[in-house]
Amino acid sequence: MSVAALIVAAGRGSRAGEGIPKQYRAIQGKPVLARTLSILLSHPGISHTLVVIHPDDRRFYEDTIRTLPSPPSAILPCIHGGTTRQVSVRNGLEALVDLNPEIVLVQDAARPFTGPDLIDRAIEAGRRWGAAVPGTPVTDTIKVIGDQSEVLSTPDRSKLRAVQTPQAFSFSLLLEAHRSAAAANLDTFTDDGALAEWAGLPVHVFEGETDNMKLTHPADFRKAERRLKGEEMTYVTRLGTGFDVHAFGEGDHVWLGGIKVPHDRGVVAHSDGDVILHALTDAILGALADGDIGTHFPPSDPQWLDASSDRFLAHAVDLVRSRGGIVDHLDTTLLCEKPRLGPYREAMRQRIAEIAGLRLDQVSLKATTTEKLGFTGRREGIAAQAAATIRLPEMSE
């Protein structure tokens, strides 16, 4: 019996707080999606695995794949999701049509603690019933309330179950149900079991796992970190610094922190001359002990002429993650008389956080003049100094 796993990883995870999508955030140094993938890829009953991602997340996804021990042949090329979870699942099912598996398991990307026994039960339930979802008993009393928060009823909790993933279905039945819902212009089902019910399929509940938590809120990530603490490798913290300077030249703007800032001068540079992003790139490379920006992007190479400096910073961050590391904090000080940083500071912080895949509170940006001393004081150029704090897996001797 062929079994395909479909991992839904196209969501934004807004309830998990600011920062990169939750499925790409690290817990104990490893992205959540990498943990979920490892579980499914290591299960002997699953022949193929497909991940549905957001179109904007390809770099995060590729970084995640690189953290796996080796490029697994069982992973199919990822595909893009849609505007809702339901659309994303349907896109994944359509991508599996040529494989035509007998059973498909639909798994949340943010469930990194799914056990192999649960997967066994899911496959068996899918084979037996054609539509089945894992569920755990509800321990709290549940109240149904009205518009004014008044209690309308109290269901018998012995008949209630909290539903999880992986949910198991006959591939052909689930695909037909999704196509029917799309034809009816329905695209807001947040659970494939509910969609199957709407399509008239009898859906069964099999035994879930209380440990199979879904990471939804910031507290869930703290709980997951505590759970894994002591089970993973230890990390060493490294600090790197960077400095960059460019002379002013002809022009009507400068690039700073990934933002185009109007100014009465431009800068003389091979790339776009963004001193903030250049200094941050060097700071990260310094923490890695991996050369400097000129090593990785030599000015003698014409391909970097007028290049956008966000590529340099993204590359440095990718190097950290490719080594299983974590970028903890980025701090920059801009040195110039003009332009003034204040009106653009928050936009720059947001752009740096976006490029580096960090939360806003992990990016600091400051500015100072040099009291009209030196080349910056004479308004001959602009400079920036930066510091980057990262964590790398501690290597044994």
Rank of each mutant, 00 (worst) to 15 (best):
D120H: 12
V133F: 03
G146I: 06
E150F: 08
Q167N: 12
E207W: 08
V144M: 05
D187V: 10
A162T: 09
V151I: 15
L175S: 12
D156W: 02
G200R: 04
S170H: 10
K159R: 15
I142S: 00
R127T: 14
L152T: 04
A194Y: 09
A199R: 03
F171Q: 07
I119S: 01
D211E: 15
L201C: 11
W198R: 10
H178E: 15
I119K: 04
D192S: 15
N212L: 01
H204F: 00
V205T: 12
V151P: 06
I145D: 01
G130T: 01
D191R: 05
A183F: 09
L195E: 12
A199W: 06
L186A: 11
F171G: 07
N185Q: 14
T210K: 14
S170E: 10
A132D: 06
A168W: 09
I145W: 07
G130E: 10
G200D: 06
I123F: 01
D211F: 10
L201V: 11
F206N: 07
H178V: 05
S180E: 15
S172I: 00
R157T: 12
H204W: 10
S158K: 13
G208Y: 10
E207F: 07
L160G: 06
D191W: 01
L186Q: 14
Q148Y: 03
W198K: 10
T210H: 14
H178F: 13
F189N: 00
T141I: 13
Q164T: 01
R127C: 00
T210V: 14
G130P: 02
A162G: 01
A177V: 02
L174Q: 02
T190H: 13
S180M: 15
G200T: 08
E207Y: 01
V144C: 03
T165L: 02
A122Y: 07
T141R: 13
V133W: 04
L152K: 13
F169I: 09
T188L: 13
A122I: 00
I145G: 00
N212H: 07
Q164H: 11
V163M: 15
Q164W: 08
P155C: 03
A194L: 15
V138G: 05
E176T: 14
V138E: 14
P166R: 05
G200S: 08
Q167F: 05
S170L: 03
L186M: 13
L174D: 06
A125L: 09
E124H: 13
E176L: 13
L195A: 10
L186R: 14
A184C: 09
W129P: 05
K159N: 12
R179Y: 05
G200F: 07
R121F: 02
G193S: 10
A184R: 15
A199S: 15
G126E: 06
I142N: 03
E124T: 13
W198M: 11
A168M: 00
A181V: 11
